[in-house]
Design a protein around this nucleic acid. Sequence first.
DNA 1: TTAGGGTTAG
Length: 842
Amino acid sequence: MPSLSLSLPSPPKLAPSSSSSSKPHNSEPLTRSFSVPQLHKAISALQFSPHQNSRLHLVNSSLLLKACIRSRNFHLGKLIHHKLIDSGLHLDSVLLNSLISLYSKCGDWETALSIFQSMGDGRRDLVSWSAMISCFANNNMEFDALVTFLDMLENGLYPNEYCFTAVIRSCSNANYASIGRGIFGFVLKTGYFDSDVCVGCALIDMFVKGSSDMDSARLVFEKMRERNVVTWTLMITRFAQLGCPGDAIDYFFNMLLSGYKPDRFTLTSVLSACAELKWLKLGQQLHSWVIRSGLASDVCVGCSLVDMYAKCAADGSIENSRKVFDSMPDHNVMSWTALITGYVQGDGQDQEAIKLFCDMLQGHIAPNHFTFSSVLKACANLPDLCFGEQLHAQAFKLGLSSVNCVGNSLINMYARSGRMECARKSFDILFEKNLVSYNTIVDAYAKTSDSEEAFEFFHEIEHTGIGANSFTFASLLSGAASIGAIGKGEQIHARVLKSGFGSDQCINNALVSMYSRCGNIEAALQVFSDMGDRNVISWTSIITGFAKHGFVTKALKMFYEMLETGVKPNEVTYIAVLSACSHAGLIDEGWRHFNSMYEIHGVVPRMEHYACMVDLLGRSGSLSEAIEFINSMPFKADALVWRTFLGSCQVHGNTELGEHAAKMILEQQPNDPAAYILLSNLYASEGHWEEVAAIRKNMKQRNLIKEAGCSWIEVENQVHKFHVGDTSHPQAQKIYDELNELAVRIKKVGYVPNTDFVLHDVEDEQKEQYLFQHSEKIAVAFALISTPTSKPIRVFKNLRVCGDCHAAIKYISLVTGREIVVRDANRFHHFKEGICSCNDYW
DNA sequence: TTAGGGTTAG
């Protein structure tokens, strides 16, 4: 950025005119004296003839021009300019100054500048310089505004309040904050600082926008000799925008106490502060004020009301928003977007949001980047990306896909459906990447278990100085948790403490979950116990942790403790409680919670809760009771319920019911590989090899790929992954030597290979060999030769742990004296001294 | 007669 040096002259002896502070401030356009048709008529009559008084003609033109500027009717203003050129009259400074202002306000700074330059030093007065500085400030050309200001000083002109207002406005961004402070010193010497409302407003904005210095802004406001609705509203608006809605509302009440009457600008901002705080009561009072004061027809106020009711709706219903929207006489892109956003934020109303978007297009209202951002969010929640892709194409055509908020929604939408390539492309083409963009992509990679990539972006965030926030840390922790990288998780934990986020509730909840999902339930409990402020998510995380680790008594104890502290359980809490009962086979207790969840706590059981009950009944062997339960469900059982039931059929070897369950799954999801594999495993465990072959052939024809079983372990911050019979690891030879040795040692203490778990039709001896190639056994063997004996071994598996491996690892924990923790697709197994925490019930 | 200030949506 070029540098500017500022040497300021001493002020003249004359004090600023007192008229500036007592001048009436009118926010009404001057069209009071000219209606639009009258303006048209007056302009078409504006013909100059030689026998007319040329001075009168110029004055008339000047008045009309001013009316055009005030009513923002730039087209007519330009028409006047052309008529003046046609008249051939010599234009005076007054008219030329007005023309500069006209072109400045319609964004045509080039024409404004050419008029200013054509005036020459002779005709340029303080008004011309001020208008030109203001023009640059209006058109984001702060540097040119400041250079023009310095030029003016060099030309010997001394700034007045108009000029200061314009130049201060050009310092309202971080790049020019220090120059702004220099000019502030200059203004202080002149006395305009506290005597002119507009200079005061410009200074407030300079402090707020340039350096987020709210204290200086407050000081300027307090020192102002005269305030009006605009100055009060400015304070309310800026505090609301800077994330201090409470202060904004304080200013609003002080404004009322000082006797000022809020206008549509004030109400719009204060409603927005209410929305932020979710203060529905105040919002409703303001709504009635809006109606009484006749401001209900204002589209901006209406927009804020729509937004306020949507944000304050505790139950996700946006009925009140809709009522306000429907009662508005006029709509624009913002009011439509506010309502669409309301529907997207409400639960499960995405279809309605999309319908509204289509209605908006039918009404010929063009969507903008905010609209696309919201409606793309709705698309991300739909199972089919088709409409989302169409919207992407539309946004691309309009040049909006690389705008920050649209791009962020696109990243999220593609990531949710696992299309990381498209998500990555959407990120890469962004014009400007802010923390929300980085957080979205970090979260996307963390959720798809590509935590290496997530960490790469985290380093970029740190490198670019954007500064991570609680969302970044929570996403990284969930990324570490999903692959069980406890070392990475511990590193983030240290970073969280260093960055001062140690007491952040959201991060602490993520830490509880991370430690628990990485196999260290003790550390999870430690974080939970140290938390000062716990919500339902904190409690649910620790209950889920205990349940998954098989510490069912502790999970249920935590649940009762949570109820005692007055925290209301939600749907997820009940999934944890029911699955805890299911893991331990506590049928009566499970029924009790299932029956009371709605009656006592108003939580309506949904599909997942029914699936937990099916699991509870099925696992314990009550298959017929389970199927009876499925048939009595208030809605049609989905594939998840039947898959759960099929799992139980496999455990209990019931081929007949298993076939029925598989049929039910495939009816809903004909290409679900999991159903085919479960059924194939069921046939294999019963020795029905012909059926196994038929299923494999069918899968091949349908091009269905079986998810390959794999296990992994983190050693010294590096993840080592193993597949069945894997020999690709650099230490493969050592690993297999260790496995052979282990096989001998555990057989000596009673291990008998269970070849029923070999799902191939081969000889017994080969079956035994197959068993010792299972990925979880390889991972355990690798851990034994590469980790210190004092530490527990934590192995992760993408599928359910195999029964023979479960037995073998129990014996391994006995002969080696090591504690081994295995996380499989369902739960944790803590193996210690020959016993597993699941008591062989899983 | 000419130049200056405050609204809404991710």
